[in-house]
């Protein structure tokens, strides 16, 4: 890897992204942090600079401001040293399923934040990397996208769409030397899930553990990462239950 290669982190202040930034910084990448809460980004940037001695830039970013995406991405390319080596997509948004069933604006927001917006941004990234014939894209999808369940299917459908789109993108970019990683984390103990998950449960992983897995999967060019690993087994079981039976379950 080129020592001055730049990685763009979209949604840099999520719990997983924060932990992943430390992993990437330890590999001496230059980082561009993008998120809405820019004041916190500056704090995060200072932290990464001091700990790892790398260059870090910040860029304000609103995932749902579709008209601003092209200009935003152009600014990021300008800030990179000779193009982006990697793009991490770490944002997403979850609303209670019940809300999305009655409030279509809310449903649309979930679909936009988890599907339309990632498609828009990662298309820009793909078109940037394709002619350069190098680089990688790592996007956080979800195990919720592997099968629709009554408790979370709007979010699940958006993530299913994203996972499928990433498969196609991987297929397209493989022929141009660009790698695409789909990340499917299980339960992760982050500030966002505080109170929703029991951090002591063996099913719940720390963001540090998940970030270590992601970092490894990016650099070993894995295609689809379940993290922690046992979620692959859990989802294999869930996806093989016949629909006639599955529809009767309360999941």
């Amino acid at each position: 890897m080129n020592a001055s290669a730049t990685v763009l982190i979209l949604g840099a202040n999520s719990g997983i992204a924060r932990a992943l930034c430390h992993r990437l910084a330890a590999r001496k990448y230059r980082l561009i942090l993008a998120a809405r809460r820019t004041e916190e980004l500056e704090t995060q940037a200072a932290d990464l600079r001091i700990r790892h001695g790398i260059e870090v830039a910040c860029e304000p970013f609103d995932a749902l401001d579709f008209d601003g995406h092209a200009a935003f991405f152009e600014r990021c390319v300008q800030k990179s040293a000779g193009g982006l080596e990697g793009v991490v997509l770490a944002y997403g948004s979850m609303l209670p399923q019940a809300t999305t069933q009655t409030d279509l604006t809310a449903a649309k927001r979930v679909l936009d934040a988890n599907f339309t917006s990632p498609v828009a941004l990662l298309s820009l990234a793909a078109n940037h990397m394709e002619p350069r014939r190098r680089g990688w894209i790592a996007a956080i999808s979800s195990v919720a996208g592997d099968r629709g369940r009554q408790s979370n299917y709007t979010y699940g459908a958006a993530k299913a769409g994203l996972s499928c789109w990433l498969q196609g993108l991987r297929n397209r970019l493989f022929h141009h030397g660009v790698h695409v990683l789909t990340i499917k984390p299980g339960f992760v103990d982050t500030p966002m899930t505080h109170g929703l998950l029991n951090p002591k449960s063996p099913l719940v992983a720390t963001p540090e553990k998940v970030a270590r897995d992601i970092d490894r999967a990016i650099h070993r060019r894995h295609n689809i990462l379940y993290t922690p690993w046992f979620w692959r087994g859990i989802l294999t079981i869930i996806t093989t239950i016949p629909e006639a039976l599955f529809k009767r379950l309360k999941m």
């Binding site: 704090t43 995060q44 200072a46 932290d47 001091i50 700990r51 500030p191």
Partner: peptide, 9 residues
């Protein structure tokens, strides 16, 4: 524990 940034060195 979530407020663990280095600010200046």
């Amino acid at each position: 524990t979530g407020l663990n940034h280095f600010l200046e060195f």
